[in-house]
Simulated assay, not measured.
Amino acid sequence: MQLYNKLSAIERAALIDEAGKDRITISFYQYYKIENPKLFRNKLFLEWNPLDVLGRIYVSYEGINAQLSVPSENFYALKNQLDTISFLKDIRLNVAIEHNNKSFLKLKVKVRDKIVADGLQDETFDVTNKGVHLNAKEFNDMLANPDTICVDMRNHYESEIGHFEGAITPDVDTFRDSLDTIEEDLKDNKEDKNLLMYCTGGIRCEKASAYYKHKGFKNVFQLEGGIIEYTRQVNEEGVENKFIGKNFVFDHRRAEKITDDVLSNCHQCGKACDTHTNCANEGCHLLFIQCDACSEKMENTCSTDCQEVIQLSFEEQKELRKGKGNSNQIFKKGRSEVLKFKQ
């Protein structure tokens, strides 16, 4: 009985090309007390693998967070399978704005302590006591209210390339950092202002809204379905769009274009640019913004040191990485002294 992916990303990419089938990228989440996450994880893998589902799925005692792609022809089979699970029946599926058949190359279903890393002790507050959900039009109306403070619950490398007009975009590296930063900055407005939050697909706001209510904020609101669902409603229902730039996504596409506005710059030369890349040196893998000219000149690396490393043989590069775990010290997101034009 196969419970784990056995193909490499390269082998899977070749199979996708060979199949020649269009794939749909979707995401969903649900907070729910799962008694046996490992058993549930195995059930999902066994049922999704035959449907050629690929993606990154986290399961924990607090629920599920899924980002995946599936062949278009298997979409309804997947939907029907989800409907057989009581707490996922009729779950809203956030369908990507821009599709890419290779948004995911493996099926990874992992058991985690949390479906979103937050560093919080969940027993200190009720995660189900969340804020008021708003659709796109309601969000726009609340955004226009002078008594509203709109906060981006994403990290700096996400909001850097796109955000809502007038939103506060905390310069933070993690979701946990943003919780404390926002509470401190808005501590004098817990009762007299509307706290309006948004994120990519809604999952971070789901927990953040409950956290802020626990911390004494009286009027807490969140964008239901996040930027992804907001954009769908803008496109399909004629709602005025208040988001500018790109929406960062956590798959091989890295971003979806919402408007043509370019809000950021190449971190190496300063030219207007909003394309993220990962440094080609596997021992660095830094996520940063790089224009086409710098990409060609630097061979997709973040520095001359990394450029020198990728000229070495595979074995030599492997030797250099020995003893260095894949920690946050290596996989930093857009923060490095070598990036001269990181704002």
Rank of each mutant, 00 (worst) to 15 (best):
2 Q>W: 01
4 Y>W: 10
4 Y>T: 15
9 A>G: 00
10 I>F: 10
12 R>K: 14
13 A>K: 15
14 A>S: 12
14 A>C: 08
26 I>F: 10
28 F>H: 09
33 K>Y: 07
35 E>H: 07
36 N>I: 09
36 N>T: 13
37 P>Q: 04
42 N>Y: 08
44 L>C: 13
49 N>S: 15
50 P>F: 03
53 V>S: 00
54 L>H: 06
59 V>Y: 10
59 V>R: 07
68 L>P: 03
71 P>E: 04
74 N>M: 04
78 L>A: 04
82 L>P: 06
88 L>F: 04
91 I>M: 02
94 N>V: 01
94 N>W: 04
99 H>M: 13
100 N>V: 07
101 N>F: 03
103 S>Y: 02
104 F>M: 04
105 L>H: 01
107 L>W: 13
109 V>T: 11
109 V>W: 06
112 R>H: 14
115 I>V: 12
116 V>A: 12
120 L>R: 08
120 L>E: 10
121 Q>R: 10
133 H>I: 01
134 L>E: 03
138 E>T: 02
139 F>K: 00
143 L>F: 04
151 V>Y: 00
152 D>R: 03
156 H>Y: 11
157 Y>A: 08
158 E>C: 06
161 I>V: 13
163 H>T: 12
169 T>H: 02
172 V>Q: 08
173 D>C: 02
177 D>W: 00
180 D>L: 08
184 E>P: 03
185 D>L: 13
188 D>R: 09
194 N>T: 07
197 M>W: 02
197 M>N: 01
201 G>Y: 00
203 I>V: 14
206 E>T: 01
207 K>D: 06
208 A>H: 00
209 S>W: 03
213 K>L: 06
214 H>N: 13
216 G>W: 14
219 N>R: 14
220 V>I: 11
222 Q>N: 05
224 E>N: 12
227 I>V: 14
230 Y>P: 03
231 T>G: 00
232 R>Y: 12
232 R>G: 02
233 Q>C: 08
237 E>R: 07
237 E>G: 00
239 V>W: 08
240 E>D: 13
242 K>D: 03
242 K>E: 05
244 I>M: 12
245 G>I: 03
247 N>L: 07
252 H>C: 02
252 H>F: 07
255 A>H: 05
258 I>E: 01
260 D>A: 10
264 S>D: 14
267 H>E: 05
268 Q>L: 15
272 A>G: 12
273 C>N: 15
273 C>K: 04
275 T>H: 11
277 T>Y: 09
282 E>I: 09
284 C>S: 07
285 H>P: 00
288 F>K: 01
288 F>W: 10
291 C>I: 02
295 S>H: 11
296 E>D: 14
297 K>V: 11
303 S>P: 07
306 C>D: 10
307 Q>I: 00
309 V>K: 06
311 Q>D: 14
313 S>R: 09
315 E>C: 04
318 K>A: 13
320 L>D: 06
328 N>S: 12
330 I>A: 05
335 R>I: 15
339 L>T: 07
339 L>C: 10
339 L>M: 14
341 F>N: 15
